[in-house]
Design a protein around this nucleic acid. Structure first.
Lengths: 150, 150
DNA sequence: TGTATTTTGTTCATGATTGAACTAACTTTG
DNA sequence: CAAAGTTAGTTCAATCATGAACAAAATACA
């Protein structure tokens, strides 16, 4: 069996990726905990944020923007609906489409959650200077673009 | 309702976090696909890698290193065992402990997978200069440390 | 018009992961 | 030594995301 020339643990690029994956996981954990008192999960907050920015979008659009399956939206929406945070309205012109809107309560809960969210991210990103942080964001966006070519 | 002063979408630090989360997700997707021909999932590869570096560790230690629950290890291990990639041996001195070892096949599969893995990560990280990449890794490690204080 | 294709949302079976409860084995301590 | 506490691994129920199969509705096109 041919051994690999350089084991990944000694590869700086690989070590960076490991660090990225670990940090992302840590942030997700911390965010989950921070949102718990608000009765929101990350997936739900993502939806609320998207609906705030793009009111009236269809479930299909929302799924595409969140990079999740359409069925996922179908499963998650009732949770927000029964909490009274989101409203679904049939489109008049295309009866297949359900248009999604935040309710007043939904918008208020979103604002509370965003305060928690930004506080956490500010704290996390305070580990870097604004310039470093900006550079990191730029690199990450390039990575996403590079991988999007499929 | 008090509006939030600055909406997160205009916050550079927040935008960086979104970019990180997106890129991480994209890389995980790409890696999943790349490993498919080898019959390995990411979680399984993580285990093989850890067992290569730390042969003979217990399931408890492995779970701790991978930052997953112990039950997860219990569920995943049989998949690798039936493929003949991993061997479990009872510890002679402490009969609660099962010590884990890669088999010859396991090591060979790991090397194949690592070749695929490093090729992908090299491609991904080639979006940055080595210096940028190194800086990013350093920032990510600081973030993990900052959040570890719980 | 009428048939074929596409699109939207839902349902369902599947797989991953988690945490709590449990058993067996070891350790501490009185 | 015996009781209490701790640790390793397993089991199980619950949560969550996914993709395939499907129904209803809209669109294309012949």
């Amino acid at each position: 069996m041919n051994k690999i020339q350089e084991l990944p643990w000694d590869n700086p690029r690989f070590r960076t990726w490991i660090a990225v994956a670990r940090a992302e996981k840590a942030i997700v954990r911390a965010l989950s905990k921070a949102l718990e008192p608000l009765g929101l999960k990350i997936a739900q907050l993502d939806m609320l944020m998207n609906l705030y920015r793009h009111p009236g979008q269809s479930q299909h659009d929302l799924a595409r923007r969140l990079l999740v399956g359409r069925s996922n939206i179908t499963m998650l929406l009732p949770q927000l609906e029964t909490q009274g945070l989101v409203r679904r309205e049939s489109d008049a012109n295309d009866r297949r489409i359900l248009r999604l809107y935040l309710t007043q309560d939904g918008e208020e809960r979103l604002m509370e959650a965003l305060a928690v969210y930004t506080r956490l991210i500010d704290r996390v990103m305070a580990q870097s200077t604004p310039e470093q942080c900006e550079a990191m964001g730029e690199q990450m966006r390039r990575i996403s673009e590079a991988l999007a070519e499929d």
